[in-house]
Amino acid sequence: MHGQTMSGWLLVALCAATGAYCLLGVRSGRGQDREGAAGEALMGFGMAAMAVPASVLAPPVWGWMLYAAVFGGAAVRALWRARGSSVHTHHAHHLVGSLAMVYMALVMAPGGAGSGHAGHTAGYAAGGVPLLTGALLLYYAAYVLRSGVKLMPVAAGTAGAGGGTFAWGARPELALACRVSMGIGMIAMLLTV
């Protein structure tokens, strides 16, 4: 990410905090919840690493290729988990997120599609935004809006229902808030591509 230094550090903090919270979900979750939290932790920490301002740390080409390989592997895993799973659309979201990270790693790499003049006009919309970037921006905007609506309180009487122990890693509203913040972070990163 080659934006302003302050906004880059804010994005690093947001994504790292989200990744750390998702690790709590890995520790306290079970089954598919645990696997989903692990994927989201990987995404949060990967986004934090990619968002470090280039003025502070400019990864070498192999670093960007490492990002692409890690998230390529995560995309294959998400594709494997999503096959035949019509109920769990969250796997498809992880697939889109992982592929978006691969795309950004390849574009941000020195000599990548976004840094050279070779493919500068190929795949761009009339306004100058690459078609894939525009499609990903639309996807994440819709995802953030849809997920954000789910955070709206339903009724005052249902707050705190269920009682019992207070476990930070098992709070569905916090997990959803983390997904919204990572979606917003992804929009911010895509805007700089």
Results as ranks from 00 to 15, higher is better:
L57P: 01
A167L: 04
A156D: 15
G31N: 08
L66F: 08
D33Y: 13
A54F: 01
A122Q: 12
S55L: 13
W64M: 03
M101C: 10
R146Y: 11
G160I: 11
G185N: 04
R77C: 12
S55V: 06
L42V: 09
A74K: 04
L132H: 02
A16T: 05
V70L: 15
E40V: 14
I187D: 02
M189D: 06
I184H: 11
R171S: 11
A41Y: 04
G134D: 02
M6V: 10
A125S: 08
A82Y: 07
V107Y: 07
Y103W: 13
A75W: 00
G97E: 09
Q32D: 15
L145A: 15
L106P: 02
T121E: 15
G46R: 02
G116R: 02
L66T: 09
R179P: 01
W168Q: 10
M50Y: 07
T133K: 06
S86D: 15
A118C: 09
L24C: 13
G114S: 12
A51V: 03
P53S: 07
S147H: 09
G111N: 05
A156P: 01
S181Y: 04
G162F: 07
T18N: 10
A125D: 10
G185A: 05
T165S: 13
V70M: 12
Y139L: 07
V102S: 00
G44K: 01
Y143E: 04
A135F: 00
F71C: 03
G148T: 06
A48Y: 06
G116T: 14
G84D: 05
T89Q: 14
L106F: 05
V102F: 06
S181L: 15
T192G: 07
G185C: 00
A188P: 03
G97L: 10
A161P: 01
S28T: 15
A175E: 13
C15T: 10
T133E: 13
T158S: 13
A17Y: 12
G134F: 00
G31W: 04
A68M: 09
A74E: 07
R146N: 14
C15M: 14
G163D: 12
L66I: 11
L191N: 14
M186C: 01
Y139V: 00
A49R: 06
A17E: 09
T121P: 01
V76N: 00
A155K: 12
L99S: 08
A48R: 03
L190G: 02
G169W: 05
L145H: 14
M47Q: 12
L136E: 00
G72Q: 00
T165L: 15
A58N: 14
M189H: 00
G162Q: 09
L138W: 11
F45T: 03
G111Y: 02
R27W: 07
P53Q: 10
S55P: 08
Y21W: 09
L79V: 02
V96A: 03
S147T: 14
G25W: 12
A170V: 10
L42P: 05
